[in-house]
Design a protein around this nucleic acid. Structure first.
Ligand SMILES: [Mn+2]
Ligand SMILES: [Mn+2]
Ligand SMILES: [Zn+2]
Ligand SMILES: [Zn+2]
Lengths: 148, 148
DNA sequence: GATGGACATGGAAGTCGTTTTCAATTAGCC
DNA sequence: GGCTAATTGAAAACGACTTCCATGTCCATC
């Protein structure tokens, strides 16, 4: 465990919502702790492999990461407008996935379940024209530039 | 509707499983009907927008397309080894998604649900080491090169 | 049959998240 | 301190996908 990986995990813990690798890299730069982008990707991949972070893909296919609060597998409901996210109870889906896979004679069944919508705070703004997930007004006003 | 789009739709109908845009392009070339890769992408996007094809993303983020047999929204169970896919009943998940979104005060809730596993025909081969979805032995033996 | 405009095509070039490369640095151990 | 294996990170490569734009095709109108 190097100081770079520790920094990645700490900054990730400071975000309560999903962030991209590049956003995380920018946050680390802003915090003074410059960490190479390559290292950020490597750290995130390792953290995802060990289950310490959850990963989703936005509409553009970009991977977004969020620190897993408690142990165990979770699914989330995320606002397409501001990025706010919250874990949801998904036992129903877990059982459904297992049953469907077993009935079809499949082994090692895996599932991907992602919920998105427009949160109560974003509905009035009604900016939901196109924003392919988080490219629109982000964090309730602060447009996330996402330059490169 | 041009002959290019018709060809895309027809070849897509000949595949009973999910195929990528590039695979479809190669199939069209092999069938003598050369269609530009750009046109294939455009046709698939249009077909997806009008609901005539379903779209999933594999582990690598690549989009895979499959002609929708009947009207209405569907979810699929796909073999990570050979690509074989079959629609599954998902009313349970539809209701769950709607309820969870409503309870959280979200509007315009959308969901992504994808099931993958190793099908009965692929289990003996047990080639499930790493193949990040269809990059391994595909179509039961015929390695899909997927060169570029 | 000619004409013009709206739309589709497709090769080439660009975009962009992510991975690979590889020389330099660092962590951990004797 | 010295040694070795792992980690770092800037630069380059990768690859799916999109955008550009010159050319082609359809079709209503004259
Ligand atoms: Mn689950
Ligand atoms: Mn559904
Ligand atoms: Zn919101
Ligand atoms: Zn199979």
């Amino acid at each position: 465990m190097t100081w770079q990986r520790a920094a990645v995990l700490r900054v990730l813990g400071g975000c309560q919502d999903f962030v991209s690798a590049q956003e995380l890299h920018a946050l680390l730069e802003a915090a003074g702790r410059g960490v190479g982008l390559t290292t950020v990707y490597r750290a995130l991949r390792a953290l995802a492999a060990t289950g310490r972070v959850d990963v989703v893909r936005d509409d553009a296919g970009e991977r977004l990461y969020r620190r897993r609060v408690a142990d165990g597998h979770r699914h989330y409901l995320m606002c397409r407008c501001c990025g706010r996210s919250q874990p949801v109870a998904a036992e129903v889906v877990e059982e459904w996935a297992e049953r469907v896979g077993r009935d079809a004679g499949f082994a090692a069944v895996q599932h991907t379940v992602e919920l998105t919508g427009i949160c109560a705070l974003c509905v009035p703004n009604a900016d939901e024209g196109e924003p392919p997930c988080r490219s629109g007004p982000a964090r309730h006003g602060e447009h996330r530039t996402h330059s490169n």
